[in-house]
Design a protein around this nucleic acid. Sequence first.
DNA 1: GTGAAAGCGCTAACAC
DNA 2: GTGTTAGCGCTTTCAC
Lengths: 380, 380
Amino acid sequence: MTRETGRGRGSATPRSVDVARLAGVSQKTVSRVFNDEPYVSADVRRRVLEAAEQLGYRLNNAARALASGRTRSIGVVTLGTALYGPASLLMGVERVVRDTGYALRVVNTMEGDPAGLAGAVDSLLDQGVDGIVISEPIDEEGVDGQSSLRLDVPVLVLGAPSPVTAPTVLTAGDGADLMARTATEHLLALGHVTVHHLAGPQRWYAARDRLKGWRATLADHDREIPPVAEGDWSAGSGYRAGRALAENGDVTAVFAANDDMAIGLIRALTEAGRRVPEDVSVVGFDDIPVAAYVTPPLTTVRQPFDTVAQEGLKRLVHTIENPDAEPLPPSAPPVDLIVRTSTAPPPSRTPPARGRRTASRPRGGTHRPSLPNGGPSPRS
Amino acid sequence: MTRETGRGRGSATPRSVDVARLAGVSQKTVSRVFNDEPYVSADVRRRVLEAAEQLGYRLNNAARALASGRTRSIGVVTLGTALYGPASLLMGVERVVRDTGYALRVVNTMEGDPAGLAGAVDSLLDQGVDGIVISEPIDEEGVDGQSSLRLDVPVLVLGAPSPVTAPTVLTAGDGADLMARTATEHLLALGHVTVHHLAGPQRWYAARDRLKGWRATLADHDREIPPVAEGDWSAGSGYRAGRALAENGDVTAVFAANDDMAIGLIRALTEAGRRVPEDVSVVGFDDIPVAAYVTPPLTTVRQPFDTVAQEGLKRLVHTIENPDAEPLPPSAPPVDLIVRTSTAPPPSRTPPARGRRTASRPRGGTHRPSLPNGGPSPRS
DNA sequence: GTGAAAGCGCTAACAC
DNA sequence: GTGTTAGCGCTTTCAC
């Protein structure tokens, strides 16, 4: 049986028997060495390693997976966008996965994908994975109702309640509502009577959580809850929402569900002659890399992507390796509000503390961008 | 031999023999059906499919890989950043890989990673992949010299010359210098005497290519080649470079190697009282999502990430599946300059065509941001 | 501490 | 068109 897979005379890919022969041990012993099993004498171990090195041997992963029933890989379902949030999360996941000795398989769910999440998970299951990470799932109408996707490997859901049924379902990074509260509180503390919200697409759990946090905060303070504008995360949608908001003279503070929309929003406000932050304060969400350098530097909530990924995966791997043990408890990620210069007390009102700021000028008049003294402060 | 892998009475994971038994055919026939092999009667095929469905059968990928010697998966080495370019490329790659029926394995090379590219590739090889995509590699000093990383699966390198030796090495998306030329030409055509360059980190091939294209263009036009500022892709580094450039009154046009740096740069210029584009024109690179909404909307070069990924992978898959055939020829990706409002003719000079623009005003004076009529144009 | 034997679930070659 | 026979390169069990 001549296989294409390089069965040429000397250049064949070596197998563990070859290493065993060269080292003068049994094949099983080679296996022991490569699996770091105990009960191998130091001397034998060294000889095996040398032989392996000499032959250029590497363990065959497929054979290993077949024999052991474990693939040592984790699959992640992403949204297939280069949006800062999802992309950062994915990179965080990769880092941890590799550190824990697993391989990473990646599959997208494009929005509008007919198969959607179910298709993505299925493809992962076909490939063979020991655990699955679902990053920032969106709510897929219809699909949800009929079959709540049932699978038999542990699952970690990032940034949302779980849309699946599995033996173990872990969640992490679902603290968005708390962060939204912090953002809203910040605006309220500056003296704004109420805060408007430019929400993300409500199919995203992440967007819903932020909205929920915002609304709860206003309710807690007995403030009026203004109608919500909904964008699609893009700066363009923020811009369009901003044009509408600019016409409403009552708007003095807006909490945008991400930085891109905040930037579009600010542009629309500025074009309409509403100064930021003198007339209108804006808070973003994410702390994208350019947030500190746009005009004006954006006050925003930094998401702890790395922490979330790390903590979530630690728990997932623990569950994979100790299927019968209690899952590790979750821990709350830190909330990190970065105050820059896109927020200020509302016009012509006495702020709660310190001295008062510029009074408002006629709308649509000449204006210049607010240039903070000393330049932007990239980190806090 | 009781395996943990669910060998419980009825709920055991079914194997192809089980399907065969139920369908009343041989195990090999089941295999045929699942591999879409010819010579299976429609009737048998249907019976097999039904039996499989009933049992909830799914092909075991590990066994398949072991028996066939092919893993049907492609590995990609990324940089582990959420930077727009690399992230977009990765998403593009995922999309195509899945479309072609392969699975995707992802590994990062963190900058500063001791193992670096070699380690990443090695890990992919351990996992077993039929081909490797190296996305935007950076030049790893030292490593390069001694061992030019030799591997025996076909490789596709995105956005750089190949740092590895393999039976087949394909490249795609290495047209950055052409795009840089277009950006530079644009500025020259507006009437600028010369163009400064804010380069990316020179360890990145992508950064070098852009620099090369810029320099070549100036040389072609017999223009003075100003000293190069080097950033690290971040808005912060652009800001720092911008502070220095702002002090040089001769600077009227800058080509930044990415949009983030361009945004930082613009901020620094603006703070220093140099208006963009009236005093200084700035061109970015990438066309990040917010580029159209920053102030002023950024003229930039759009990178065709999807096209590059798609075209490159088509060629890679072709090579994997037809190892002996000629590799498919590369095709040049389109160059897409998006002109917005961060570029204009230089101050107090007659532009080559059309009417003249605003004369320069005293530096450091009052100024307002350039607000384009009708708002930003997100696409072209 | 080490080895022998028996699969893991599939695909490859060839016979029918 | 379909079945038979051998493995693919490991891990597992159990004997020594």
